[in-house]
Amino acid sequence: MLVKLTNLERLISVLKDGKWHLGDELAAKVSWRFGHTVFEARKKGYLIEKRKVAHNQFQYRLLAA
């Protein structure tokens, strides 16, 4: 049986390495609406950092709890 991961589960699985990830990568691996998923994750207590790397381009990483 194939288990479908939620966008939140996909986001955390990408970010759990603690490294910076480009928004483009998250859009490809999570959803083109990954920003909403980041918002959901923060509401649930995940500490997700965001930094600007270029015009209209950002990176994200999960801080260890």
Score class of each variant (00 low, 15 high):
residue 2 L to K: 08
residue 2 L to M: 09
residue 2 L to W: 04
residue 3 V to W: 12
residue 3 V to M: 07
residue 4 K to R: 12
residue 4 K to P: 04
residue 5 L to F: 05
residue 6 T to K: 06
residue 7 N to H: 04
residue 7 N to W: 00
residue 8 L to G: 14
residue 8 L to Q: 12
residue 9 E to N: 14
residue 9 E to D: 14
residue 9 E to T: 14
residue 9 E to F: 07
residue 10 R to K: 11
residue 10 R to C: 10
residue 10 R to E: 06
residue 11 L to R: 03
residue 11 L to W: 01
residue 13 S to K: 09
residue 13 S to E: 05
residue 13 S to W: 04
residue 13 S to H: 11
residue 14 V to E: 07
residue 16 K to I: 06
residue 16 K to C: 15
residue 17 D to Q: 12
residue 17 D to R: 10
residue 18 G to K: 14
residue 20 W to T: 15
residue 21 H to V: 13
residue 22 L to V: 10
residue 22 L to W: 02
residue 23 G to T: 08
residue 23 G to Q: 08
residue 23 G to P: 06
residue 23 G to I: 07
residue 24 D to M: 14
residue 25 E to N: 00
residue 25 E to F: 04
residue 28 A to H: 13
residue 28 A to C: 13
residue 29 K to H: 10
residue 29 K to T: 07
residue 29 K to A: 05
residue 30 V to R: 12
residue 30 V to D: 01
residue 30 V to E: 11
residue 30 V to F: 11
residue 31 S to N: 10
residue 31 S to L: 08
residue 31 S to I: 01
residue 32 W to I: 06
residue 32 W to Y: 02
residue 33 R to M: 11
residue 34 F to S: 01
residue 35 G to I: 11
residue 37 T to E: 05
residue 37 T to S: 04
residue 37 T to N: 06
residue 38 V to L: 07
residue 38 V to A: 03
residue 38 V to K: 07
residue 38 V to D: 03
residue 39 F to H: 11
residue 41 A to S: 04
residue 42 R to H: 05
residue 42 R to Y: 00
residue 42 R to G: 06
residue 43 K to P: 05
residue 45 G to H: 02
residue 47 L to Q: 14
residue 47 L to S: 09
residue 48 I to Y: 10
residue 49 E to A: 13
residue 50 K to S: 08
residue 51 R to A: 05
residue 52 K to G: 06
residue 52 K to W: 05
residue 54 A to D: 10
residue 54 A to E: 13
residue 54 A to Q: 12
residue 56 N to Y: 00
residue 58 F to C: 00
residue 58 F to N: 09
residue 58 F to W: 09
residue 59 Q to G: 01
residue 60 Y to V: 15
residue 61 R to I: 14
residue 61 R to T: 13
residue 61 R to M: 08
residue 63 L to S: 12
residue 63 L to P: 06
residue 64 A to C: 07
residue 64 A to L: 11
residue 64 A to G: 09
residue 65 A to M: 02
residue 65 A to P: 13
